[in-house]
Design a protein around this nucleic acid. Sequence first.
DNA 1: TATTGTTATACTCTATAACTATA
DNA 2: TATAGTTATAGAGTATAACAATA
Lengths: 150, 150
Amino acid sequence: MTEPQPHTTTLGRLVGYRLRRASAVFASDFAVTLEGTGIRQIPMGILAVVADNPGINQGTVGRLLGIKRANMVPLINELIEAGLIVRETDPTDRRAFTLGMSAEGQRMLTECVARIEAHEERLLSGFTAAEKATLLDLLERIEQRAVTTD
Amino acid sequence: MTEPQPHTTTLGRLVGYRLRRASAVFASDFAVTLEGTGIRQIPMGILAVVADNPGINQGTVGRLLGIKRANMVPLINELIEAGLIVRETDPTDRRAFTLGMSAEGQRMLTECVARIEAHEERLLSGFTAAEKATLLDLLERIEQRAVTTD
DNA sequence: TATTGTTATACTCTATAACTATA
DNA sequence: TATAGTTATAGAGTATAACAATA
């Protein structure tokens, strides 16, 4: 991560480029912030979705987060081996798995969210509450433009 | 890419998560848009920086774009093998390389920029000019918070 | 000694295709 | 037939360490 492109350059005018760089700033600070927990950005997303939707099944988590079925497998295995989530066969559909938080996972998530909120406040310390809300709104609207292919 | 997280969820409130998803929306549409050209996001960034700064050296390009020295090597080789950029030994520092556009590279860049502008207009069709300007401004301010480590 | 570019290497994330077991 | 999860595999992107040539 280094010097930004002034907005007078070819790249500086491109929203896609700016998004990539801003996202990278958050990702690398995220990694530093959660150092020691062993939690990365993607597994953290899974933990958060499972906590918000106890009993959700594996495929649905992937669909919500834009993670392909095949790539979910090792991610879920990792979280189970770490003792953070629990997997059960769905009694109503024996092909599917039902996911839930372990007590340890819930503790870990709470800890991570606290650290992440501090890291976001740090990175956005130059922003007013209104600016942050505007940013979230604009980003959410971009997300809604996604071509839902899977 | 699929259903977004409502802003009432754990993830929906996190700017880092929203940035990652919005960035992914742009990246996947970018890939479709430049399909057939063989140009990806990162190499496109390099082309744009070299075009804006003829005679720039390899390391500087990497520093501007947040690409590590070691990772620049195959990227530059790829662009040279494709005949898009030209590499010369810097006469004032024989360790360093000086990069420039080939005629073909300049044509390719012009073509790509035109397509990218159309793709950005499409993705941002629900945004006013003021909203787009606000977004670019907010993202640029985040970039400036980057911890410049290398 | 420090820096430019290189090589080798490893890890994460993403993508596709073919498989199984259930539905 | 279609779907949930799995396996195998390949490609991009990113990271570190050690090296040669030059400063």
